[in-house]
C-alpha cells in the first residue's frame, strides 16, 4: 500500500516537473523558432510545423540594430562597474567589519538605509549633476552612477564575509612588518575571493541589463547599450517579429551563457544575501 502511494507521488512529481519545464522553456523555444524562420508570420502554421530555416534574421538584426557595438558598450560599462565596486566595496566592507569606530558605523547604517531607496528616484536631480560634470553621453559617468547604486549591496556582502574570517593571518602579516593596508591588500583581499566572485557575477547581470538609468543618460546611438539598442530596434522594425526575435536572442545570449557556466556562484550569492537575519 505504502509503495503504491509513493510511486503515485513520484509520478505526480515528474508530471509537475514536465509542466514546469514546458512553462519555463516554451517562450525560448518560440523565440528560437521565430528567429530562425523565414516566413513572416511563422506561428500561423502552428507552433510545431517544420520551420523554413534561415540565418538571415540574425544578420539583419546584427547589422541594422548595431548590436555588435551595443554589446561592446554594455561590456565596457559592466567591466568598469565591476572593477569599481570590487575595489571600493571590498575595502569599505573590510574596514567596517574590522574597525568599528563611529564614522564606520555611521557610514554602514547609511548604506543599509539606502538599500531601501529605489534608484529611479534620483534620476531627475542626477541629470542636472551629470550635465554639470559633462557626464551625459559618456561611459565613465554611467559607470560611476551604476556602481554607486550597487555599492550598498556590495559593502553589505563584504562586511558579512569579513566578520566570519579569522584575524590571525592579518596579525601575522603585521608582525612580519606589513603595514595595516598591506596586510589587507596582500593577505585578506585575496582570501575574499568567494564573495568577490559572488559580487561580480550577481552584479554583472544587473549592470548588463540596466535600462532605466541608461535611457536617461545615454542618448547618442553610438553609445547605446544592448537594452537600449533592443528598444530602438523594436521601434524601427515594428511587426518584423523575425528579426526582433533574432535581436532578442542575441542580446540574451551573453547572460545566459554566463549563468549556465557559473550557476553555482549565482545560487551561492543569493543564499549569502539571505542569511542576513
Amino acid at each position: 500500500m505504502k509503495g503504491y502511494k509513493n510511486r503515485l507521488r513520484r509520478t505526480l512529481g515528474y508530471i509537475g516537473m514536465g509542466i514546469l519545464a514546458f512553462i519555463m522553456l516554451f517562450p525560448f523555444y518560440v523565440l528560437c523558432y521565430v528567429a530562425l524562420n523565414n516566413r513572416s508570420n511563422p506561428l500561423s502554421q502552428g507552433v510545431f510545423a517544420m520551420p523554413d530555416i534561415t540565418a538571415e534574421n540574425f544578420i539583419t538584426a546584427w547589422q541594422r540594430g548595431n548590436l555588435g557595438g551595443a554589446a561592446w558598450n554594455s561590456f565596457l560599462i559592466t567591466a568598469g562597474c565591476l572593477v569599481l565596486i570590487v575595489l571600493l566595496g571590498a575595502s569599505a566592507g573590510y574596514t567596517i567589519a574590522r574597525y568599528s569606530n563611529t564614522m564606520n558605523k555611521i557610514i554602514f547604517s547609511i548604506f543599509l538605509c539606502c538599500m531601501m531607496v529605489p534608484g529611479i528616484i534620483n534620476t531627475v536631480p542626477l541629470y542636472t549633476i551629470m550635465r554639470r560634470i559633462h557626464g551625459i553621453n559618456t561611459h565613465w559617468a554611467m559607470i560611476l552612477l551604476l556602481s554607486a547604486n550597487r555599492l550598498p549591496y556590495c559593502v553589505f556582502l563584504y562586511k558579512q564575509f569579513v566578520e566570519s574570517m579569522p584575524r590571525d593571518l592579518e596579525e601575522a602579516a603585521t608582525l612580519d612588518g606589513c603595514s595595516r593596508f598591506q596586510a589587507y591588500w596582500l593577505v585578506t583581499f585575496p582570501l575574499m575571493k568567494p564573495v568577490t566572485s559572488t559580487v561580480v557575477i550577481i552584479s554583472s547581470v544587473s549592470f548588463w541589463n540596466n535600462y532605466s538609468q541608461a535611457v536617461f543618460f545615454l542618448q547618442e546611438k553610438s553609445l547605446y547599450t544592448l537594452p537600449l539598442s533592443m528598444k530602438q530596434f523594436v521601434l524601427e522594425n515594428t511587426k518584423n517579429w523575425n528579426s526582433i526575435s533574432a535581436a532578442a536572442l542575441i542580446s540574451a545570449v551573453p547572460m545566459v551563457i554566463l549563468f549556465l557556466c557559473l550557476q553555482k556562484y549565482f545560487i551561492k550569492g543569493l543564499a549569502a544575501g539571505a542569511v542576513k537575519g
Binding site: 575595502s91 574596514t95 557610514i107 548604506f111 539606502c114 534620483n122 536631480p125 547604486n149 593596508f181
Partner: peptide
Amino acid sequence: ANYYKCMALPAFLLFFCFFIYPLCLG
C-alpha cells in the same frame, strides 16, 4: 598609518556624490 581605518571613505564618497547628494537635491 591610519588609512586602514578610513578605507570606507572612497566608497562613501562615490555613493555620496551619485546617490545621497542627488537625493537631497531632489
